[in-house]
Each structure stands twice: as C-alpha cells, then as structure tokens.
Design a protein around this nucleic acid. Structure first.
Lengths: 251, 251
DNA sequence: TAGTGGTCTAGACCACATA
DNA sequence: ATGTGGTCTAGACCACTAT
C-alpha cells in the first residue's frame, strides 16, 4: 500500500535506539557524535543534530557541549501523567458529559483559598460548585474559586453548558497550571454529591491556574475512588515523542 | 556580569509568545508563516522553522502542512504529572531514603498480576514486598512482581541497598512504563506497614514496565494519603520546554 | 589543537492546502 | 498557481572540553 516514507533524521534516531535496545549501547556510553553520524550514515550534520536533539528531548540521551552525547540513565527517567479537563476527558471516551451547578456565589475567601490565590485575609472571591456526570453518573465535584476582578461576568454564566475551566480560558490569553493529586476522605457534602459509599476515599486534584504571573483561579476537583482513576501513560522510548491518555475505569 | 546571549530562534519564540500573551494573537488565530518571519525578523527559514516547531512541541501552536500555523486552543492543553522512583524523589528533597524488605519469594501469580504480565493462569512470578522510608517515616509500600525468567538473580539481591526498580533497570536495556493512580482504602497489611490511621485512604500508583514489547514487572505502590501527594507541575507556555516536579508535603 | 555540541544561513525539493 | 509546512544539504562561526 503506502510507501511509508521515513525521514532520514528518524532513521538515525531509530538506529541509535536500536543499539540501546540491543545492549550495544548502555547507560552513560558514548553515542556517535554528529560528525561521526555524518560519516557513517551519509546525512548532513544538521540532520544528525536534529536526530540527537530529539533523542535528548525524549530523555534517551544527554548531550554535553564540548564533550559528547551519552546514553541517559534510565533510572533517572520519569513517567508522565496527563491531567485534562473533565469534559474533554469524558468526550474522549465517547461518553456524554453533563454538569449541574450546585452553587454560584460571591464569598469571603477561606484561608486555603486566600493563600492559593495570594489574596489578603478577607478578600472576596467568586465561588462555583458543580457536579460533573459521565453518562449520568457523577464523577467529579468541582469547587472553584476565582478572583473577582478577573472574571467580571462569571456570575452570569451557565456552567451547565460551558464548564468554568472552558469559560475562563476564553477570557484569559494564556495560562499556567499547577496540580496536586491526593487521596482523601471526603466530607459529607462531597460524598453525597458523588453518590459515594461510606468509607470510600476520593481522588482529589487541586488545580491552580495563572494568567500573566498571577494566580486567578483555584479549584478542588473531587473524584470517587471507586469509579475514577488517573490513568497512565507510556513514556515510550521506542515511539515518537510523548503521548499520554486519561482513562476512566468501568470498575 | 554575563551578556546573556539569546539565540535568534528563542527571540522569535518569545516574540510570538508575547503576542499571544498580549491578546494580539488569540486561539485559532493564524501565526506568521515561516516565510513571513524570515521577512519580518531577518532570520533564515530554518531558524523560523525551529522556533515554530518548538512552539508546537510546547503545545502553544499547531501546524498544518499546506495550510499554516495557528495558536493552539488552551482548553485542549493538558497538564503533566511526573512520577518518579521513590528513592530519587526522596533524594531530590534532600531527605534520606531507606528501605526494608518485608518479603521476597517465588509465588503463583494471582489473577490481576497474571493479567498485567500477560501470563497464563498458574505461572510463577517473583514477588518482593518492601517498605520505603523518608527520614525514617514510612511513605511507600511496594508490592512488586517480576517475571521469573526476566531476572534470574532477583532473589539474591539486597533491595534495602538498591531498590527493585533500580536493579531491574540495570539488567534491562530499555523500558516503557505505564501508570495508574487511584485512591483506595488500604487493607490491614498496608495500613500497618505505612503506620496509617484508621480510615485514612491511600494513594495507589500501579506501575507496569516493559522490556522489548513484553511486560516484565508490575508493581503496586501504596502511599499514605495524609503524608504523600503527587505534586504538580506547571505546563508553562512562558518558559522553555516541559518541566515537572514531584513533591511530598510536610502536612 | 582537535573535537564537540549550539547555532545559523541560503539555498533546495517535496506533498499538500487554498484559491 | 501560489503559499504552506516538512525535510535536507553543505557549508559556517562560536564556546567549550579534552589532550
């Protein structure tokens, strides 16, 4: 069928990855330099450079200017988990996402929220609490706090149609995000909203989002431990780049 | 002090990121093409290409061959969590890691393990159970299963000195890894080994590792919910590349 | 001094999009 | 037909490292 054209830099990458898989090259071993690859494979130096740079980005080799390129120590490798928006995550599974707004109010920030948003003691923040459903089953309770001055029309939104996360990204130009994942015992409100069994723990994702050097929103996302997991990913040295996937179990 | 030399491709990247931050460029807007950047900034096309390619890798723009380059929709952005080996993680915090071997045996694989390792019903696997400590406090119970034929000297190792993960990586040339994170109620053994309070949930990381297209080891890593969290990361459009960090709390 | 990686250029050919 | 991104080349200069 298709000729499956493979770029030359990819061929060089595959060559080196093959030698690492073989055992020909071991951790900390020296990898052929750019000039050596030019001679041995016939590619130009820029192409050899691209191959080695991409292997560096993938964590497979390490480069030291003036010294050489070396096979990275796999013990130092780390695996990545991807955390997505709940609506997108559900959609990716081909399921239906719905949301219900439980609360939408202007409140005085509690201590944790004030700290997270770098606000003074009795600052006002906007608060939305909603439950997200996947095919009708509750899978996330979202407790979101937003700096009032950042989103002036926040209180007029219909978050059952567009999630707070999606809405906020339409009014903010660019955002950094910070996540923490914990296992916690839910309080009564969380347990009831998520229809959780007694004693069932929840997987909590705390997310803080920046816009232009300032944290502007802070969210606690509770998930029922028995029906939700952050699923993993393969940091795959044998494939191209980084890919990740979130999955919900049907456990 | 230092002249702080900034490469030209980086200047081009900063230029575009600046326009996105400004609001000059919004999601789905067209970004200047390589040829336009050549004309407007004076760099060569390869340099413009590098700038745009790196922005693509960072998830800031999307490129469509034949069509153009466009600002990525931030709603589609996802954040990454990094999962490291426990010994390395502890060391990164400047703390002392110790481990105690609770069990080291050859057993018949249970159903979950057999499935995870793609083994038949009554296959034998090697099993190690150990507790990891950070400055003397237990933070991880590791239940690891290894395909017997993969690590013939597994039973003779001193895992208090070198963790199973580190040992396995010395005998395997290259590995893929797959992770799942869950919140669970620990059983009695886990709770006791980790010195957990009654009702305290645990954060469970299940890790499966491949060597040459075959899963060779499978581990359940239990962490006390009150003393451990997978901490976040900033997918930072404003900075270079992807960086992530794991942290343990001192809560 | 010779080798290394880091960067940059000014061309080039191709497949594909849009019009 | 033109423009786009994807790839590739054969040079080049630089800072750094090792000898």
């Amino acid at each position: 069928m298709s000729a499956e054209r493979i770029p030359r830099y990819q061929q060089v990458k595959d060559l080196i990855k093959q030698q690492i898989s073989d055992g020909t090259l071991k951790a900390h071993d020296r990898v052929p330099s750019e000039n050596e690859l030019v001679r041995s494979t016939g590619v130009s130096r820029m192409t050899a450079n691209r191959a080695l740079c991409e292997l560096t980005d993938e964590g497979i080799v390490e480069r030291v200017a003036g010294s050489g390129t070396f096979v990275a120590d796999l013990r130092a490798r780390s695996t990545l988990l991807e955390v997505r928006n709940i609506a997108e995550e559900v959609a990716l599974r081909g399921h239906t996402h719905t949301a219900r707004v439980v609360r939408l109010e202007r409140v005085t920030a509690d201590a944790e929220t004030a700290t997270a948003l770098k606000l003074g003691a009795s600052a006002n923040v906007l608060h939305a609490r909603l439950v997200h459903y996947e095919n009708g089953a509750p899978i996330q309770l979202e407790d979101r706090y937003v700096i009032a001055s950042f989103a002036s029309e926040f209180m007029q939104q219909d978050f059952a149609q567009e999630t707070p996360s999606a809405y906020l990204s339409t009014i903010a130009p660019l955002q950094d995000a910070e996540h923490v994942v914990r296992a916690e015992q839910p309080d009564r409100h969380v347990r009831e909203h998520l229809d959780m069994a007694k004693g069932e723990p929840c997987l909590l994702v705390v997310r803080r989002t920046w816009s232009k050097d300032r944290p502007v929103t802070f969210a606690r996302l509770y998930h029922p431990g028995s029906r939700f997991e952050l699923a993993g990913h393969v940091l795959s040295p044998g494939r191209r780049g980084l890919r990740a996937a979130d999955t919900k179990t049907s456990r």
